[in-house]
Computed example of a mutant assay.
Amino acid sequence: MRGNPRDSPEIRVSKTLSWILRHGAQSEKIEMRPDGYVRVSDIVSFAIISSKFQGVDFETVENIVKNNDKQRYKMVKEPDPKSPTNEEVWWIRANQGHSIKTVAVDMKRITSAWDIPTGIAVHGTTLEAWSLIAQKGLSKMRRNHIHLAQGVPGSGVLSGMRRSSQILIYINVQKAIDAGIEFFLSENGVVLTPGNAKGYLEPSFFKKVERIEGKNRVPLPEWDSPDPEYDKLQEEAAVTVEGMTGGNPDALAVQPLQSEQAQEVVKSENSLVDQTEKLSI
């Protein structure tokens, strides 16, 4: 199974499921719909015959979906087009993070920065990755999109951001949209962008950058242009995110609550993916 051998069996099963749904379905010959869904029965059958994913049944998959703090997955019961009686079966997909180019999951197009519930889009990364990102920008790497969170670590479990982030890159979404960059909002609240034609979100679209030092966030001087309105929006976003999580550090902060300003407008799965995620999330 995927993941670190020191991880619990539950975590390794979840990482293997994530790898299949985001990256490995084609290589493992598991049929996938254009919207990213695969039959849960196909996952279970794969688990039975594969040494990579043994001991997984329907209940295991269902529990992973229900208990995942970032709501990475979605299960639905829909007709099976291959069934002569149009029988309904269970399907599962990853909500985002795909490298399979033919997958197009349901997403809401963002036409204005105010379409983002908190009004904020921020990318968390490591100090090591930042030295390259500062020069070239954020890259989607082998994935279909660059992932951005609606808040910062410490305000609940936020889809689109790692807990281990050391650098926070705030994106000027409106400037990027005006320059022709597309943005979308996934079903579990992650802000997604394919970047430019080369798959990059260039540094010119970075609004500000902060370094996490303990419980403090320290702006990097060369990436911090004074903007009281944006600072206020950040503060409001933090309150909004706190409201989304209800003060629960394990809750998911993706409910459609707006900040005051936005109310009116509204290591790893595999070595390749590990390197991708180190630089892209």
Results as ranks from 00 to 15, higher is better:
residue 70 K to R: 15
residue 164 S to A: 13
residue 80 D to P: 11
residue 64 I to K: 06
residue 118 T to Q: 08
residue 78 E to G: 02
residue 101 K to Y: 02
residue 121 A to C: 04
residue 72 R to M: 14
residue 92 I to Q: 04
residue 125 T to D: 08
residue 70 K to M: 15
residue 149 A to R: 06
residue 159 S to C: 06
residue 94 A to E: 01
residue 156 G to I: 06
residue 78 E to R: 13
residue 111 T to M: 05
residue 102 T to D: 00
residue 115 D to S: 12
residue 59 E to I: 00
residue 69 D to N: 12
residue 116 I to C: 08
residue 84 P to V: 10
residue 52 K to A: 09
residue 47 A to V: 12
residue 109 R to T: 13
residue 182 E to R: 13
residue 85 T to S: 15
residue 102 T to Y: 00
residue 103 V to C: 04
residue 175 K to D: 08
residue 56 V to H: 11
residue 73 Y to F: 15
residue 62 E to Y: 09
residue 120 I to N: 01
residue 81 P to D: 12
residue 105 V to I: 13
residue 95 N to R: 11
residue 120 I to H: 01
residue 163 R to S: 12
residue 167 I to N: 02
residue 121 A to F: 04
residue 75 M to I: 14
residue 137 G to V: 06
residue 54 Q to S: 13
residue 179 A to K: 14
residue 180 G to K: 11
residue 89 V to I: 15
residue 142 R to K: 11
residue 147 H to C: 08
residue 112 S to V: 09
residue 89 V to C: 14
residue 107 M to W: 07
residue 123 H to Q: 07
residue 114 W to G: 04
residue 72 R to D: 10
residue 109 R to Y: 04
residue 38 V to D: 00
residue 178 D to M: 08
residue 87 E to W: 11
residue 146 I to H: 02
residue 72 R to W: 14
residue 98 H to K: 02
residue 63 N to H: 10
residue 117 P to T: 09
residue 44 V to E: 03
residue 145 H to S: 05
residue 79 P to E: 05
residue 124 G to R: 06
residue 120 I to G: 01
residue 168 L to Q: 07
residue 181 I to C: 02
residue 136 K to G: 02
residue 160 G to L: 08
residue 99 S to R: 09
residue 174 Q to W: 12
residue 153 P to L: 00
residue 168 L to T: 02
residue 51 S to E: 10
residue 178 D to Q: 12
residue 129 A to G: 07
residue 155 S to L: 06
residue 40 V to S: 00
residue 35 D to S: 11
residue 95 N to E: 13
residue 172 N to A: 11
residue 150 Q to D: 07
residue 131 S to P: 02
residue 159 S to F: 03
residue 118 T to H: 08
residue 83 S to A: 03
